[in-house]
Computed example of a mutant assay.
Amino acid sequence: MRFISAIFWALLISGVISYVLSSMAGDPFNFTHTIILAGILSVGVFALGGALKEESDH
């Protein structure tokens, strides 16, 4: 369940970031860029969460 919620929030936050940046640049909103950014954020969150959990176990 935590992976689904992390992907959902990454997609939501990426959508907002992509919308704001494309509006500031005057470009049309591109959902493909949103999905790519969400993937990068999800992988970063999973990696950071795994690294922090391993350190706290020792």
Rank of each mutant, 00 (worst) to 15 (best):
I4V: 14
A25N: 03
E55Q: 08
F46S: 00
L37A: 15
S5R: 10
L21D: 00
G26Q: 00
L48I: 07
A6V: 12
A25H: 00
S14V: 05
T32F: 10
M1L: 08
S22L: 02
L11I: 06
F46G: 00
W9T: 15
L37N: 14
I36V: 14
I17S: 05
V20I: 14
L48S: 03
I17T: 12
E55A: 05
V43Y: 05
I17E: 05
A38R: 07
I35Y: 03
K53C: 08
A38I: 00
S5Q: 04
I17F: 07
G15Q: 00
I4G: 03
S5D: 05
E55R: 09
A51S: 11
A38V: 10
V45K: 04
L11T: 14
S5F: 11
L12I: 15
I40L: 15
L12K: 04
N30R: 09
A25V: 08
N30I: 09
S42T: 14
V45F: 04
S18C: 13
F8Q: 07
W9M: 12
D27E: 11
H58D: 15
I40Q: 06
L41R: 04
N30Y: 09
D57N: 11
G44I: 00
F46N: 01
V16K: 01
D27M: 10
R2V: 10
I40W: 02
D27A: 15
L12D: 06
T32E: 13
K53V: 13
A25Y: 02
L41S: 08
F29C: 03
V45D: 02
I4P: 00
L11Y: 10
A25M: 08
V43M: 03
L11P: 03
G26A: 01
G50W: 02
G50H: 11
L52W: 09
F29H: 04
F8G: 04
V45Y: 06
F3L: 15
S5W: 11
I35K: 03
R2Y: 05
L37P: 07
N30M: 07
I13P: 00
H33T: 08
S42E: 14
H33G: 15
A51F: 10
L41N: 02
G44F: 00
L37C: 12
I35F: 12
W9H: 11
S22G: 07
Y19F: 14
I36W: 06
A51D: 08
D57Q: 05
V20S: 01
G50P: 07
